[in-house]
C-alpha cells in the first residue's frame, strides 16, 4: 500500500531523514518510536507530503507522491487521514462543521450525506452530544477524539497519527488510545508515531525504531521489546520502559 524507498529530508544544512526504506501493507499497524529529533515525525509528515522530501520515493496506492501534481496530491490526502499532536480542530466551526467541511467543500458528499456520516462518526467516538459545541468547549481528550472522527469522515485508507497523546493530560490519554485500539481492531491501516510503549506492545503489528534519521530496527512487538538487537534500541528501551 505504501512503499517508501531511500526517503531523505533536509532542512537547510540539517539532514533529518537519511534514507528511510519501508513497505507498509494494507491492514498493518505500524508504530514508530524513537527519541526526539530522530526524524519520526518528519517521516510521517513526508508520507502525506506536508513536508516535501529532498530525495527518495514514496508510492501510495500506485501514485508516486514525489512526482505528483498538486491536484493528485490533494486527491491522495483525501485517502490519508492525519491526526496531529495539537488536534488542529477548526475553532471557528462547530464540531459537526469540523467534520463535514472537507467532504462538503470537496464535493465528495452532499451536505445531508456528510451530516449523516458525521453523526455516525461522532457516535463511534462517543461524542454524539457535542455536535453543536465548539472545539474550545471540549477537553483535550475529547478534542483528539473529534480530530480522529474528522479524519474518519473522509473514509481514509490509512490513518497517520503524529504523537496523538503527547499534548494530553495523563488522565485523558486512555480514552484516545482506547479509540485507536478500536480502530485497529476494525482493520484500519495505521501508522502511529508515539511514546506510548504499552500501546505499541498491545496494538502494533510491527514496531519501528528510528534513530539518527534511519530505521535502526524493526520487528514484531514481541521480539522488538523482549529481544532488542541493537545497543541503541536497548539503551532507548531501558530509558522509557
Amino acid at each position: 500500500m505504501i512503499e517508501v524507498k531511500d526517503l531523505r529530508k533536509s532542512f537547510g544544512d540539517l539532514e533529518i531523514l537519511k534514507g528511510v526504506t519501508i513497505n507498509i501493507e494494507k491492514g498493518e499497524k505500524v508504530v514508530v518510536i524513537g527519541q526526539s529529533g530522530s526524524g519520526k515525525s518528519t517521516f510521517l509528515r513526508c508520507l502525506n507530503r506536508l513536508e516535501k522530501p529532498s530525495g527518495g520515493s514514496i508510492m501510495f496506492e500506485g501514485t508516486d507522491l514525489i512526482a505528483a501534481t498538486d491536484k493528485q496530491l490533494y486527491k491522495v490526502r483525501e485517502k490519508m487521514g492525519m491526526v496531529f499532536q495539537h488536534f488542529n480542530l477548526f475553532p471557528h466551526l462547530t464540531i459537526r462543521k469540523n467534520l463535514t467541511i472537507a467532504p462538503v467543500k470537496l464535493r465528495v458528499m452532499s451536505k445531508e450525506e456528510a451530516d449523516e456520516r458525521a453523526e455516525i462518526m461522532l457516535k463511534k467516538v462517543g461524542l454524539a452530544d457535542k455536535a453543536e459545541s465548539y472545539p474550545n468547549m471540549l477537553s483535550g481528550g475529547q478534542k483528539q477524539r473529534i480530530a480522529i472522527a474528522r479524519a474518519l469522515v473522509m473514509n481514509p485508507d490509512v490513518m497517520l497519527f503524529d504523537e496523538p497523546t503527547s499534548a494530553l493530560d495523563p488522565e485523558m490519554v486512555g480514552e484516545v488510545l482506547e479509540l485507536m485500539k478500536q480502530l485497529a481492531e476494525e482493520g484500519m491501516t495505521m501508522i502511529v508515531v508515539t511514546h506510548e510503549m504499552g500501546f505499541a506492545k498491545e496494538v502494533a503489528s510491527r514496531v519501528v525504531f528510528m534513530d539518527g534519521g534511519v530505521i535502526a530496527e524493526e520487528n514484531d512487538p514481541q521480539t522488538f521489546f523482549s529481544n532488542p538487537e541493537s545497543p541503541r534500541l536497548r539503551a532507548f528501551l531501558s530509558k522509557v520502559l
Binding site: Y74, R77, L106
Partner: peptide, 29 residues
Amino acid sequence: DQGQFEAGASLGLNYPKTMLFIILPQAFK
C-alpha cells in the same frame, strides 16, 4: 497557527479552499 493550514491540507482541501473556509474566517475575526 500553521497547524490550521496543515489540518486543511491533510483533509484534502487545497490551498485556496483552506484559505477561504479555514484561515480567512479566523483571521477576519
